[in-house]
């Protein structure tokens, strides 16, 4: 039985924690940006061992990044002033603090309303930003992706700012159709995948901005690798989210697929990322072309979230946009 009781104190605390999160993310972003800006520029030219593809092998054509995947050793940022490195370390700590605040905001909102805290667009966007930052922070434990920090935090700050400014609704109970465990399955998967796609999208946009040659931005190889890894993980999760959505639709709306706008656009997004993966593994497309496909898919994802919720509507209009 749903309750209509909302713990107003907890709800306010959650709202304040989102603001704290924004401040901490901004601080982390500045720290990472300082580190990046005062580090020595990096080159895309791979100096280390470069594996040559067998002559006449018909492998990937030698475009700007072909064969450079093995160049991990050459992309270590050259020495930068000590204080810049320290700024990066501080940023990392502040980033984790922001992450904790973000996590607390989501959990406390859930406690305040006694349900899963992602039933409207405000809660959903806050959760996606959390997922993106989580993906980044955990990835950087195992892989050298620190260079992405500034950009991930920019994206998350924009997302949270947008949510607070334009999407915020008071904590409250949900309408009957959302009052089911399906929300935990379907929406959690969508959030997780969207967070990872966001990480990939940020890398992809940087990839396109960065020209070849000397730049303070991370190398194209690194960017591409981060994007590829994130999409590889996110794609099955996204697929699961859509199938779970169809199962839910079969329970709630009386059909598993009905070309509702949200369904159409999640299908388009799915095709887009599938095309990206396919291009990478089968067609051997790498670099710019694959990145452009990835960005198109990301645009479809964003349109599904923002455009469909705000401008199009349909059965799936739970966004509760104020």
């Amino acid at each position: 039985m749903p309750t209509s009781e909302v713990d107003a104190g907890l709800a306010t605390l959650s709202d304040q924690l989102v603001l704290v999160t924004v401040l901490l993310y901004v601080a982390a972003m500045i720290g990472y940006a300082l580190e990046l800006a005062f580090a020595a520029p990096r080159t895309n030219q791979v100096s280390g061992a470069r594996r040559k593809v067998l002559a006449g092998a018909g492998g990937p054509s030698a475009d700007e990044s072909a064969g450079s995947e093995v160049s991990a050793t050459s992309t270590k940022p050259p020495a930068s002033p000590g204080w810049a490195q320290r700024a990066g370390t501080v940023a990392l700590v502040v980033g984790w603090l922001g992450w904790a605040a973000n996590l607390a905001a989501v959990v406390i909102r859930g406690l305040a309303v006694e349900r899963w805290p992602w039933a409207n667009m405000y809660e959903f966007v806050v959760a996606i930003c959390f997922a993106a930052v989580t993906a980044f922070l955990f990835m950087q434990i195992r892989f050298p992706v620190r260079f992405l920090g500034a950009f991930v935090f920019v994206a998350s700050t924009i997302g949270l700012g947008f949510a607070v400014r334009y999407l915020h609704v008071q904590a409250g109970p949900v309408q009957p159709s959302l009052n089911t465990y399906w929300i935990a399955i379907h929406v959690s998967a969508a959030i997780l995948a969207s967070g990872l796609f966001m990480l990939a999208g940020v890398s992809g946009i940087l990839y396109l901005i960065r020209k070849d040659g000397l730049s303070r931005l991370p190398t194209r190889t690194d960017l591409e690798r981060v994007a590829h890894r994130a999409i590889l993980v996110a794609f099955p999760i996204w697929t699961f989210a859509i199938i779970a959505g169809a199962l839910w639709a079969d329970r709630a709306w009386g059909r598993y697929w009905g070309w509702d706008p949200k369904e159409v656009w999640s299908f388009i997004t799915w095709i887009g990322y599938a095309a990206y993966l396919h291009a990478c593994t089968t067609a051997g497309w790498k670099g710019k072309k694959a990145t452009i496909i990835q960005i198109i898919a990301f645009a479809a994802l964003l349109f599904n979230l923002v455009g469909v919720n705000i401008f199009v509507g349909g059965l799936h209009s739970y966004a509760d946009v104020p």
Binding site: M1, P2, S4, V6, Q170, G172, P173, Q175, P176, N179
Partner: peptide, 16 residues
């Protein structure tokens, strides 16, 4: 049908 009785979301459906 049950509805939220008071507060900002007064009138929102809770359960059918």
């Amino acid at each position: 049908a049950t509805y939220v009785i008071e507060g900002e979301r007064r009138g929102q459906a809770l359960d059918f």
